[in-house]
Structures are given as structure tokens and as C-alpha cells.
Simulated scan of single mutants.
Amino acid sequence: MDATVDSMRSGSAQPISKAKATGRLADPIFVGLLWASGIFVLILLGLIIAELFKGGLPALQHFGLDFIWSPAWNPVTENFGALVMIYGTLFSAIIAVVVALPLSFGIAFFLTEIAPQPLKRPIGVAVQLLAAVPSIIYGMWGFFVIVPLMAAYVQPPIIDIFGNLPLIGALFAGPPLGSGMFTAGLILAVMIVPFITAMFVETLESVPTMLKESAYGVGCTTYEVYKNVSVPYGKTAMVGAIMLGLGRALGETMAVTFVIGNATRMSASLFAPGATIASTIANEFPEAPIGSLKLTSLLQLGFILFVISFIVLALSRALVRSRLD
């Protein structure tokens, strides 16, 4: 009897010991794979930065730092500068955020506080579907629908009313072409609304119910609860959502290329055609001969766009950290 028990114990101990040995072997392998994954991201990012910098270095050596501040872009005389594209990138992205922010707040507030239960899911799915639409579809829609509407019904009355006013008149000057900075900003706003709204909804839904019920208990209205409880509670995540939308708008290519007008000149007018870094690269990269000054200038533009995106990311992290502190 004792021999049988001992044999059973020894038999059960063998699988346990094998499992322990396998676990001891698998654990360092798993940790090594995790380290390799993290290091791979850093290496890949470093290679991208190095390739862009190396490819654009001849343009920087030829033009110096004036390349960043020069508004010239003339492939015939091979005189290139980045200022027009930097201006267009920042200007259109800021317009997009200004337009998208109140829309995202309104949609998120409606979904979390106002919408009846049967409407929440369809509207939420519709917002998610907007995020899944390819950017080229937005560009085609903007070119065939929004641009004609802007040229026929929106820009002419605005130009007539505000175009001759002092100070602000420069923002609305020019012919009603339909395409331009403002149109590009509108298309970008539609594209980033789903991203910002989704994060806003998640943030507002994470607000403890007890906090909102306490506010309602002391007589606050729905708007006061939203303003004084929900938004302050999730303001850190909301700042991150806004900066995420800004970063998305900065790097958009095809949708902007369709509607911005692709004119390499600067103008204070919202309705004037312009160009962004991404749209310029998309338009002129296929026509740039290998080894030419134009190609290196385009690569330098890509490096500048990367630097701008990095600055936006660093700024967003600094803002979130300051609010957490």
C-alpha cells in the first residue's frame, strides 16, 4: 500500500517539476521578446529619422537655415523653401481643431447625457464608421461636394459682408474659389471629429456616478453637471484627445491635396489656396528625379513634418503632466 502511494506521489511530482522547468525556461524568453519588441520600435523610429535627415541634408547644406524661412518654391530655378508649407500645415490643422472641438464636445455630451438609449448605439457606430472611412474618400467628397458648395453659397456672401472690413477683412479677401485653407480645415475637422469624440465619450463615461448624482442632488442642471463635474474630472484625458486630433490633422495627405488648392504661396485669407507639407510631397515626389535638389528638399520637408509632430506630442505630454501635477 505504501509503495503504491509513493509511486503515485512520484508520478504526480514529475509533471509538476517539468512544468516548473518549462516555466523557468519560458519566462526569460518571454521577457527577452518583450525587450526586443520595445527596442525594435526605437530602432525603427531612429532609422526613419536618420533616413529623412540624411536624404534632406543636401538641401539644408545648399540653402542653409534659410530653407526653413524661405517662402520660395520654384522647381524651374531650383529655389526651394519650406515656409509656405509649414504655414499651410499649421494653419489648416488649427482651423480643423477649432471647428472639430465644439462638435466633439456636443456629440460626446449628447451621447453621454441626453441621447435616449435606442439612439446611443446607432450614433456611436456612425461616429466609429466616420473614423474608418479612407482619407481619399474624404478628399473626393470634399472636391465634388464641399468645394462647389463653398464656391456658390458660402464664400461669396461672407466675402461681400466681411471682405472690406478693416483688420479682419484680410481673412476673407480673394475670389470665391471654393478650395483653399478653410475648406481643407473643414475636411480635416470631419476627419478628426471621430477620434476626439470617441476619447471624450470614454472620458465622460468614466466619471463616477456618485459625483454626478451628488451634483444633481444639490440642484445642479444637466449643463452645470457637465461643466463643473464631468469636464473637470476628465480634462487631462481631453487635452490628450485634442492633441491627438491635432497630430492627426498635421500629417493628413490625400484629403488635403484634393481641396487645398496646392498653391505654393502664403496668404492671410481663409479662402486662399495653399499647400501643406504632406500635400506638397504627395504632389511633387513622383516628379522629383533621384539625386536632384528637389528630391532632397522634399525629404527635408518630411523631416520638418516629423519634427513638428514630435513637438506636438511633447507639448501634449507636458500639458497632461502639468494638469496631473
Rank of each mutant, 00 (worst) to 15 (best):
E205H: 07
L52F: 12
G106T: 06
S297R: 03
T197K: 00
A282E: 04
E284M: 14
S17N: 15
G81Y: 01
A198L: 12
F63Q: 02
M1C: 08
L130K: 01
F63K: 02
V190E: 02
L33R: 09
S37G: 11
F80P: 00
G251H: 00
L47Y: 14
S292K: 10
D2V: 12
L25F: 14
M140Y: 15
Q14W: 15
L65F: 15
G274Y: 05
A249P: 01
K54E: 13
M243G: 13
L313Q: 11
G55V: 08
L90H: 05
E284H: 13
I192E: 01
G169Q: 02
W35E: 12
T253M: 12
G81D: 03
V218W: 10
K54R: 14
S230H: 06
T257I: 10
A82I: 02
M140V: 15
I94H: 02
M8A: 15
G274C: 08
F306V: 08
S316F: 04
A115D: 02
M191P: 03
I95W: 00
G180E: 06
G217V: 08
M191Y: 07
M181L: 15
R24F: 14
W73L: 02
I242T: 10
S70K: 04
S267N: 04
I290V: 15
M150A: 03
L250I: 06
M150F: 08
V84W: 01
S17F: 15
A115I: 00
I49K: 08
P166H: 05
P166D: 07
F172C: 04
S309M: 10
F67A: 02
A19W: 14
S267Q: 01
A36T: 13
G274S: 13
K120W: 05
I168P: 03
P15I: 09
L211R: 03
S292I: 11
V307A: 12
V154G: 03
F105Y: 09
Y153D: 07
V99C: 05
G139D: 02
S179T: 14
L305A: 07
S70F: 04
G46K: 06
L167E: 11
F91G: 00
L293S: 09
S70T: 06
V312I: 10
A13W: 14
A59G: 08
I308W: 04
G56A: 10
